[in-house]
Write a protein that binds this DNA or RNA. Structure first.
Lengths: 265, 265
DNA sequence: GCTCAAATTTGCTCTAGCGCAAAGAAGCTC
DNA sequence: GAGCTTCTTTGCGCTAGAGCAAATTTGAGC
């Protein structure tokens, strides 16, 4: 099953590590068995093109790490000691200004990675990662990460592609922020969230994470008041159905119309 | 001199490549001799920790590429076929929206690299690179880049650190844009430019690149009108001295006061 | 020195969106 | 289900800054 090259010793260690991880997850966490973890990692873009047997090796080097709603995986400004892949839950990545304004950079869910770049560049986390739902992640520290990168070269390239994608997304958001008006940005934010975390229900697409008006404001560079007004308006037009920290998109196309600034029918 | 391992053939090729490059630069370009190129690359963060002899190898794989003011090294949307290191001049990296709004992401100068991430991730340039002064850059195509990365592992890590830094900067700018008001953002932009391209003169710190009010607006997410008003105001207070596409900072501390929102004396 | 295009300034108007305040909902906890 | 906290909505006033128009300045080329 473990069909990679290496000394017997290292194989033993790895298997032992895997067993320990299995034990931890089962006993401490009462959660996802290893098989599913494997599937999850295999699905993660970071491990694309890497053999399941090799992914097991990676798994063995990981530590599980839990965070309940409101707890942090790491804080902005701390030394970046590890990178994480989320197994379960939702995590909010945000920056806070010296004046106390918060800005939400993005939300993440299962199979997303956080901290990949920073851990390798030996710096400090540039933002904080807070669980907005009870979450579980796998954690690799600096040494483990370096070792993995050396063992499995595709990882480095995958990581790079990932980073390139994120970079581009951030650049696009920057452009939006500087050229588009609020309503459009909010529409885009909702559509983005729908793509990431949308759950199809009979009411429409439910954004499966607790999302306050304040959060949306911090995602789009506006205030909770303005967001509230916009949502009320959309609700009247039948585009969305909102509740406390809960949004269902009933008419995605309506939002697209706004996001793309198309003529309204 | 070329003290790396490799077959005689490859050494020959490399030396030949180097000679060809020298010839090109001397004959076609009438510019910087190889020795200076070496020094420049050695100064570039990308090549940090790499031996001069090895840098020569990298140089041999590069092609010189010139762009006069107004010409582009690459355009947004083109396949990312190469990455560049600027030798001389100034380059403006900007994105343009479908509606035609332009956004300036940053300016770059000698020893800065452009396109490092994208070339390796086989995507498309997410922005355009326009020379705002006559410029010369070294160009490595995909194959050359890959080869270099394999030959000199520190390159990959250096690249990663570089990207991490850029990423962080962009995140900070994003935060600024979404939480701070225009005057502050413009002050920050000027200080950033001063750090990058500032030339000490007896008048003060001259920003050594042609910079219109429009440019500054596109850098800070505002309009040329507002920038003009702000600069006029600052000129009256003696913080800056402005001309057509020309800005001299007379009182950096004054700008810092605004950028940091300190109480005015 | 004249001409012309491009950059800049400034007055004026207008509005998107900020932000306070105060009054509802909606969930928790006990 | 009473009480509390935390979200949300909405009215209202206000201002930062957009954006047009019309001078005015600047520098480059001839």
């Amino acid at each position: 099953m473990l069909q990679f090259g290496g000394s017997i010793d290292s194989v033993t260690t790895l298997v032992f590590g895997l067993d320990r991880l299995r034990a931890k997850i089962h006993v401490d966490m009462h959660i996802t068995p290893t098989v599913e973890l494997l599937g999850l990692l295999a699905k993660s873009p970071l491990f694309k093109g890497i053999e399941p047997a090799e992914i097991e090796v990676a798994l063995a080097a990981a530590q599980p790490r839990r965070a309940s709603r409101g707890e942090f995986f790491f804080h902005q400004g701390e030394a970046a000691e590890a990178f994480f892949i989320i197994v379960e839950g939702r995590v909010r990545l945000s920056q806070i200004t010296p004046e106390g304004h918060q800005v939400i950079i993005r939300f993440m869910g299962p199979s997303d990675g956080m901290g990949i770049i920073v851990v390798l560049s030996n710096t400090v986390y540039p933002l904080s990662a807070e669980a907005v739902a009870d979450s579980l992640a796998l954690r690799w520290n600096y040494d483990a990460t370096m070792e993995l990168m050396e063992q499995f070269p595709p990882l480095a390239l995958n990581g790079l592609r990932l980073v390139a994608g994120r970079f581009q997304e951030l650049q696009d958001r920057y452009r939006e922020l500087s050229t588009e008006r609020v309503e459009r940005r909010v529409a885009r934010a909702l559509l983005r969230l729908a793509r990431q975390t949308g759950q199809r229900t009979d009411e429409g697409v439910l954004l499966d994470l607790p999302l306050s008006r304040q959060d949306l404001g911090e995602m789009t560079g506006t205030t909770l008041y303005t967001v509230s007004r916009i949502l009320s308006n959309w609700e009247q037009q039948g585009f969305v159905r909102t509740g406390r920290e809960r949004i269902v998109i009933r008419d995605p196309h309506g939002l697209v119309t706004i996001a793309e600034d198309l003529p309204k029918r």
